[in-house]
Nucleic acid binder design. Structure first.
Lengths: 268, 268
DNA sequence: AAACAAGTTCTAAATAATGAAACCTGCAAG
DNA sequence: CTTGCAGGTTTCATTATTTAGAACTTGTTT
């Protein structure tokens, strides 16, 4: 059940892939070996396979492994066929143009926030988030907006997985504090991030909910305390709300092209 | 040696992953089964493993498989640790701001062009390319710019893998025509795309070359025949050239942080 | 109600993964 | 030089996983 279960060879290979990813830079064989539970020969063969498959690349000059381009190809396909991101894209463009501030689209992945798309502010501000990056759920606007609408039976498990690290003095760093906050969010209908993750960074966030109340993702508009305030940002809620609803509707409506039509005979 | 070699279990699993990716939309089990060389039970288990690993997601309502979010996470890491893309990023921003037209950064992946980053024109034009997408090498500006500087011994293999499909009347669709074109590009120092891939779309492209002449990637500025001409675009060459060189230098200079320093003891 | 199609589980047999140990390097110290 | 050594690669008998035929469920069509 755990991710590190001895599921099979594929799991081991993917574990190695994650390890390389975690390094964040090209790695030599022995670096990996030190951290690996597998013996030399096994690790070696796993790496060979991954390189052979284009999931890793190997630089013979520096004898270093790095993540391969096949991943980028696959991820592009993943993004495209996810039901949310491609549909939301034009609306993000519109929202971005309208408000001129940083706009995020995020989904929940395991217990974390995955930023699936982003538009920079007209006058960009440096910050943590990036499309494809994951962030904490308990101290980001999008994260809290999604947590607030999770079904009661899944919420505890998710909360249990948060690190509750206090990034800033304002970070809510306990499940209890969070439950109160989530109640407030449900009453309000949207979430704030009041410098809970990065000092000076604030945002308003709204969940994207399916008609049956399921959490599809979240939208946020982010700025800085230097430029604006939560009061100001709150004025954008109706606009964001409107867009979140449109995206939700379209996501539910849009069945993939052809679906009942002649299912296209295979093999002539 | 071929990609479909019976390399092992990992290869099979990845093949299935590609298959799902190729569908471009959620797939049902039997759709995959029809196209799969594996028997029911085998395919079934492979899918289970991939879902368990988060490489695929499974929607029980529609009983459909789709690519999973773990891929997006991995790909982000891949992009970040590739030596080219993160370094080039600020320069793309600058180039984009300066010229106001669509800007591409591409690398060669197998025999194809992989767009690793992109900036839209101030007034965006609809076109094929997208970050993460692959495209043909023989009929795009970035593709030809890179082909022109490939070492003689690898070029033939790459050319042999092109489809030579004539997307437009202007597409160069034979290795012979291409060799002449590549000679011209080397003399000129940059490549054009004169509506060879999409009608009405033109561009100038320059390779990003390492100090030893290796092809690291390519940069292009793209527009439409309605808006400008190749003559006009050509005026941008010095600007692009300059940026391509800067990127190349920085890529070569930038060794990852710490490298000779105390290699950070593992395991206390 | 019967037939069917899609999806799931079981199993012995086949196959692929494993890892200890031996083997290459090239380099640095004696 | 030549010895020792660390990083990397290969071998091979052993072991564990994967395989795929067939039987079984379940839900849907005629």
């Amino acid at each position: 059940m755990a991710a590190t279960a001895s599921d099979g060879t594929v799991a081991k290979a993917l574990e190695v892939l994650d390890q390389v990813a975690a390094y964040g830079r090209p790695v030599r064989f022995s670096d990996l070996l030190d951290q690996s539970p597998y013996p030399k020969a096994t690790l070696y063969r796993l790496l060979q396979t991954l390189v052979g498959q284009g999931m890793l690349s190997f630089d013979p000059d520096r004898s270093c492994y790095a993540l391969g381009l096949r991943l980028v190809r696959l991820a592009h396909a993943a993004w495209q066929q996810s039901s949310l991101a491609p549909i939301a894209r034009p609306y993000l463009d519109r929202l971005s143009a309208e408000v001129g501030e940083t706009v995020h689209l995020a989904q929940l992945d395991h217990a974390q926030v995955l930023y699936v798309d982003k538009r920079n502010a007209r006058d960009p501000i440096p910050m943590y988030s990036q499309a494809g990056k994951v962030g904490p759920a308990y101290c980001t606007g999008v994260g809290k907006a999604m947590l607030a609408y999770l079904p009661d039976n899944t919420l505890p498990a998710i909360l249990a997985q948060q690190s509750w690290h206090a990034f800033t003095p304002k970070t809510l760093s306990s499940p209890e504090a969070m439950r109160a906050e989530l109640d407030a969010i449900r009453v309000r209908g949207f979430a704030f991030d009041d410098e809970e993750h990065e000092p000076g960074i604030i945002c308003v966030a709204l969940p994207i909910l399916s008609s049956r109340g399921g959490v599809l993702g979240a939208l946020s508009v982010t700025s800085t305390t230097a430029r604006t305030s939560l009061q100001e940002l709150q004025k954008l809620v109706p606009t964001i709300q409107q867009i979140a609803q449109t995206i939700a509707q379209e996501t539910e409506t849009w069945r993939f092209p052809e679906d009942g039509a002649t299912p296209m005979r295979k093999r002539a």
